[in-house]
Nucleic acid binder design. Structure first.
Length: 219
DNA sequence: TGCCAGGCCCTCTTTAGGGCCTT
């Protein structure tokens, strides 16, 4: 059964190329429709946290002074998520920091981590009635469990994980005719997030068809 | 005070521009 890692970074800015560094990371493991494990840590990169970010996240320079080094945190994280495809809310943002911080820490690239699905792109496909696709809005829209203080890594990763579970449920229900008993795994999420709204059903059918071919190929 | 990035999507589009989403 596939395990998916839902991740969330808190950072000092919007882009690693603009000098932004990670301040906190969380990863939540999802398997078989359940949250099965979680990891969270502050990390010390030596970067200064601007007042605006401190107010937004509650993460201060003083808190980071006692935090473990980014290198040790990222090595732990690489082990924790080993072999798991990744999911994040606005994956383009987290993917940029993931790649930059993993490279700085000298972690070997994990082929599974090249597959990075985005709950924003999926939400834009699936929830046309939602006011917008911000994480907090979608959590309220679906009545997701309260995961704690927003803009902290574990709380946001937990909320994203609950959103992902909701999406897997909704996709399975909406496309029950095409999917049958096929689980809603990472490959289908990737397929759907790239599909045009009007082509959702065709994407599911294409995915199911390919799964069938792969199943035959393994026998 | 306001902007600083980057990837993706949508449309009054595709030889482009603007909005969304993340910290």
């Amino acid at each position: 059964m596939q395990t998916i890692a839902v991740i969330d970074f808190e950072t000092t800015g919007l882009s690693p190329n603009g000098g932004g560094r990670a301040t906190e990371i969380a990863a939540v493991l999802v398997r078989g429709g359940l949250i099965v494990d979680a990891y969270q840590s502050l990390m010390q990169t030596g970067a200064w946290v601007p007042p605006f970010i401190e107010e937004l996240t509650g993460i201060s320079n003083e808190m980071l002074a006692d935090a473990p080094s980014a290198e040790s945190v990222l090595q732990d994280l690489a082990l924790f998520t080993q072999g798991c495809p990744l999911v994040a809310h606005n994956a383009a943002f987290d993917r940029g920091f993931w790649q930059a911080e993993m490279a700085r820490a000298g972690c070997m690239p994990d082929p599974a981590h090249e597959s990075f699905a985005c709950t924003v792109l999926l939400a834009r496909r699936l929830y046309l009635d939602a006011p917008n696709c911000r994480l907090g809005t979608l959590a309220q829209f679906h009545g997701l469990p309260d995961s704690g203080q927003a803009h902290r890594a574990l709380a946001d990763a937990m909320t994203t994980a609950h959103l992902l579970l909701r999406m897997q449920h909704d996709i399975a229900e909406r496309f029950a005719g095409e999917l049958g008993s096929l689980p809603v795994e990472h490959g289908l999420l990737n397929q759907l997030q790239r599909a045009h709204k009007s082509a959702l059903k065709r994407s599911v059918q294409d995915y199911v068809k390919r799964q069938g071919v792969q199943a035959l190929a393994t026998h």
